[in-house]
């Protein structure tokens, strides 16, 4: 067991180092175009993704289950989702600005998640359900899309002449909303089976509703009320702040039925 723990920790740390290399080379390239160091960013980013994937595999083998349960495990999946979105941007040959904003964000997030590293534990009875996988997968997809949407919103606020940034942000937020809705529905169905009630105003449930309302207002404001793009960008950032509070804040500050870790 300890061999798996050492391996997964080491692989994650190596992934973090590779991510730093990808981020640093991208930033240096932007600052010093003559260096041509930016060519390192793509292979280093791929390497980081592979190392995070291997770390998740080692954890799965050590625990005898998929890494879907604790806050650290969710963070690991979240980073993998963000790396997948980064790769999609690279393959779609998006401009360098996407790399410049996304890789530092992934690096900071991975660094924070390393602080939350903990050994895998067996699943408690309430978590032994097929709904866990549906619930966590929809969460990873929704939060990943919103995270990149918010990062692009920040980039657009800095560089407002780049229409592509705004459009991509808007598409990601629009795509994330159905997954967020499915996340809440899957959680409610699971709660009905596990706790006998589909909604209990538990802090995690309530904050997922708050997040849903922020994006609901965003979508209506952007689509129907024709808000100014700047307002939409700020709302995309606000939505992700709500996501972060639902993920970190509720776990660390508010106790409730979701206090598993």
């Amino acid at each position: 067991m300890s061999a798996f723990i050492n391996a997964e920790y080491g692989l994650f740390a190596a992934g973090l180092a590779a991510l730093f290399l990808a981020m640093a080379s991208g930033l240096l390239q932007a600052g010093l175009p003559r260096l041509r160091i930016g060519r390192l960013a793509f292979p280093a980013g791929i390497g980081a993704s592979g190392l995070f994937l291997l770390s998740a595999t080692a954890r799965s083998l050590g625990a005898g289950r998929l890494p879907f349960a604790s806050m650290y495990e969710f963070g690991l999946l979240f980073i993998l989702a963000l790396q997948a979105i980064w790769l999609a941007f690279e393959l779609a040959r998006k401009p360098a600005v996407y790399r410049l904003v996304l890789l530092p964000f992934n690096f900071v997030l991975a660094g924070v998640m390393l602080l939350f590293f903990q050994e895998s534990r067996p699943l408690m009875p309430a978590l032994q359900s097929a709904w866990l996988f549906i619930h966590v997968l929809t969460a990873v997809l929704a939060y990943g899309l919103f995270a990149v949407g918010a990062v692009l919103a920040v980039a657009w606020l800095i560089k407002p002449d780049d229409d592509g940034l705004w459009r991509t942000m808007d598409r990601l937020v629009s795509l994330g909303f159905p997954f967020l809705s499915l996340l809440i529905v899957s959680g409610a169905v699971w709660a009905q089976y596990a706790w006998g009630s589909f909604w209990r105003w538990d802090p995690k449930e309530t904050w997922s509703l708050i997040t849903w309302l922020v994006y609901l207002i965003y979508l209506h404001g952007a689509r129907v009320r024709r808000w100014r793009p700047r307002s939409c960008a700020w709302f995309a950032i606000l939505g992700f702040v709500a996501v972060l509070f639902t993920f970190f804040g509720v776990n660390l500050l508010l106790s409730g039925l979701h206090s598993y870790t």
């Binding site: 002449d161 705004w166 459009r167 629009s174 909303f177 529905v185 409610a188 169905v189 952007a222 024709r226």
Partner: peptide, 28 residues
């Protein structure tokens, strides 16, 4: 509630499989 969840899931499939009419939002 189950009926509502069923309708919601159906609606989300429609949203994910469908295509939003393009709206040209040009910043500024």
């Amino acid at each position: 509630v189950w009926a509502g969840f069923g309708l919601l899931s159906l609606a989300l499939v429609g949203l994910l499989a469908g295509r939003r009419p393009e709206v040209a939002i040009v910043p500024g």
